[in-house]
């Protein structure tokens, strides 16, 4: 896209929590950690978000996103499906897989009506047939590419949406206030930048994550008898 202002507006549209893809129903394990009182204050929320970003999202979702973006730019649907399958393999927790798939499907549904494109039509068909898992970061990459965002902007939009989603969940869980949310958001900005820069240089084969306690919490989410969030 030649006009950068245009691009910035697309970026804002996609990154905005106003964009409907159901991510407000996800807490990424935070609800479970709050219920078990492992997380009780703003510092712990900040550590939680930082851990998730640096030890999980940066090494998996963002790497997949960067590669799916390239595959979409090459109009290579097989390569998109491959990234989707590899990210699925990197996501062993069932609840997380379901959440990734649901928000991927929601995004695909809304994007297909907003930015109609043959790649999105094809992906919708493949999803209905069960040929792709339709994971959120992969669909996000394709939508961003089609909407003519640069790859870095696509990564930034994804990370921003992710962080905003978790901080919103933390507020609704009553563990931080609206000011603390903004302070945390500001404090982790360098981490957000770092993972976006790194992700675009990583080969798909090098996807990794290491967040054992958060993984356990995400697994427990499915068993909570009182819960607000889907993950």
């Amino acid at each position: 896209m030649s006009d950068t202002l245009d691009q910035q507006f697309v970026l804002m549209q996609l990154a905005d929590s106003f964009f409907p893809s159901g991510t407000y129903t996800l807490s990424h394990g935070l609800e479970s950690l709050v219920q078990s009182q492992c997380i009780t204050n703003a510092d712990e929320v900040e550590t939680f978000v930082r851990l998730l970003l640096c030890n999980k999202i940066g090494g998996t979702d963002l790497v997949a996103l960067a590669h799916a973006y390239q595959a979409s730019a090459d109009n290579n649907l097989d390569a998109i499906a491959d990234v989707d399958a590899r990210l699925y393999a990197q996501t062993p927790i069932e609840k997380t897989r379901i959440a990734q798939r649901q928000s991927g499907r929601a995004l695909l549904m809304v994007a297909s009506k907003t930015w109609p494109h043959p790649q999105l039509t094809e992906l919708s068909g493949q999803t209905a047939q069960g040929q792709v898992h339709c994971l959120h970061p992969v669909i996000f990459a394709v939508v961003a590419q089609i909407a003519e965002l640069e790859q870095q902007a696509a990564l930034a939009a994804f990370v921003h949406g992710f962080v905003t989603g978790i901080l919103g969940a933390a507020i609704r869980l009553g563990v931080i206030g609206h000011l603390q949310a903004q302070q945390i958001r500001r404090a982790i900005a360098p981490d957000m930048t770092a993972i976006c820069q790194e992700a675009s240089t990583q080969p798909l084969d090098d996807m990794w994550s290491c967040t054992p306690l958060i993984d356990l919490a995400q697994m427990r989410q499915a068993k909570l008898s009182r819960r607000l969030f889907a993950s």
Binding site: P20, S21, Y24, A106, A169, R172, R227, F229, A230
Partner: peptide, 17 residues
């Protein structure tokens, strides 16, 4: 369907789930 404690969002602003 879980709504992340946003019941009206789930039927209006973002009914995707």
């Amino acid at each position: 369907v879980e709504t992340g404690s946003c019941p009206h969002t789930a039927i209006r602003e973002d009914p995707t789930m």
